[in-house]
């Protein structure tokens, strides 16, 4: 059980509510080679059972992370993964190299699926050639675990996942947000400064579940499922669909302690069903 990038800050935002060591790990905010101010306000619109965001990868850049944030997060008694984003292949490579030098970061999650910046990686994540180019280039320089976060804004996510696997990904996580839009009819204006944004929350769960199921059948590497998980039952559904692990995202905003509740809930489920290893649930869907 991991907490999803962009929903958990750098972990410190949640330490009043939970003990981070109860989690499998946290994935910190999307990090880019150079600092980014992100998009203009407004960046968020609530939607039925979900929300749209257009944050736009606001972060202080990888050098700031290495110097100021890593010393703190490396003390956490949990695994800390860094979500790496970029506009060009060279940016991804340079950023991944800098994170590789950090002993306490066991893996990166390559974000080839941010829908909120013009060249925020989604351009790479929506074609097999694009994802192969960026994953292949990062694979050459990054020798720890390379997780690749997939965009749902594609026709066949299984094809994209297979391209990532062929290019050297160690695992894939999915789904990133779905491209969406919200309009204020009274004002005849979009609710987001960027007009479109990324949809997340409970409303995307059926889509995410379907995509995890399709991808898990198509690749041999582990699949990490996310998209609308807010309970242990949700998480177990993703495992049954073929995920080896899950991430919790938007639900952290609604209940800052939800991640630990999900972990406990999975333990209860396993006890009730006399399951010794959670891993036996992966792909155990009976059709």
């Amino acid at each position: 059980m991991l907490t999803a990038s962009g929903t958990f800050g750098y972990g410190r935002e949640y330490t009043d509510f939970i003990d981070l060591s109860d989690l499998g790990g946290i994935i910190v905010k999307g990090t880019t080679l150079h600092p980014r101010e992100g998009n203009a306000y407004p960046r968020m619109a609530e939607t039925p059972s979900g929300m749209l965001n257009a944050v736009g990868l606001q972060n202080k850049g990888v050098d700031y992370f290495v110097e100021h944030i890593y010393p703190e997060v490396s003390q956490y008694d949990t695994r800390v993964l860094v979500n790496v984003s970029g506009s060009t292949v060279d940016d991804y490579v340079a950023c991944a190299e800098k994170i590789q030098a950090l002993d306490k970061i066991p893996a990166i999650e390559l974000n080839v699926s941010c829908p909120n910046v013009k060249q925020g990686g989604m351009a790479f994540g929506v074609s097999c050639e694009g994802i192969a180019s960026v994953v292949g280039a990062v694979r050459k320089v990054y020798h720890k675990h390379l997780m690749v976060k997939l965009s749902p804004n594609v026709t066949s996510i299984a094809d994209i996942a297979m391209a990532a696997e062929a290019a050297g990904a160690d695992s894939v996580s999915l789904i990133n947000t779905l491209l969406g839009m919200s309009i204020d009819a009274e004002k005849r204006r979009p609710r987001l400064s960027t007009v479109t944004g990324g949809l997340s929350g409970a409303c995307v769960k059926p889509v995410a579940l379907r995509m995890v199921w399709q991808v898990a059948k198509a690749v041999k590497i582990p699949v990490i499922g996310l998209g609308g998980i807010s309970s242990a039952t949700d998480a177990i559904e993703f495992l049954l669909a073929g995920a080896s692990a899950v991430q919790i995202g938007t639900a952290n905003f609604i209940d800052p302690a939800v991640s630990v509740k999900v972990v406990r809930g999975i333990e209860d489920y396993c006890e009730r069903h006399h399951i010794e290893a959670v891993s036996s649930l992966t792909g155990a869907l009976e059709i």
């Binding site: 962009g6 929903t7 949640y14 992100g38 203009a40 306000y41 960046r43 968020m44 929300m51 905003f253």
Partner: peptide, 27 residues
């Protein structure tokens, strides 16, 4: 009172443009 999601400085949705750049109104 910018529109917020998390309220704890995690999501960076409620930012205000300040002399120090974007800052979370919630945090």
């Amino acid at each position: 009172e910018n529109t917020m999601a998390c309220g704890i400085g995690a999501c960076l949705c409620c930012v205000e443009d300040t002399v120090e750049g974007h800052r979370c109104v919630c945090q």
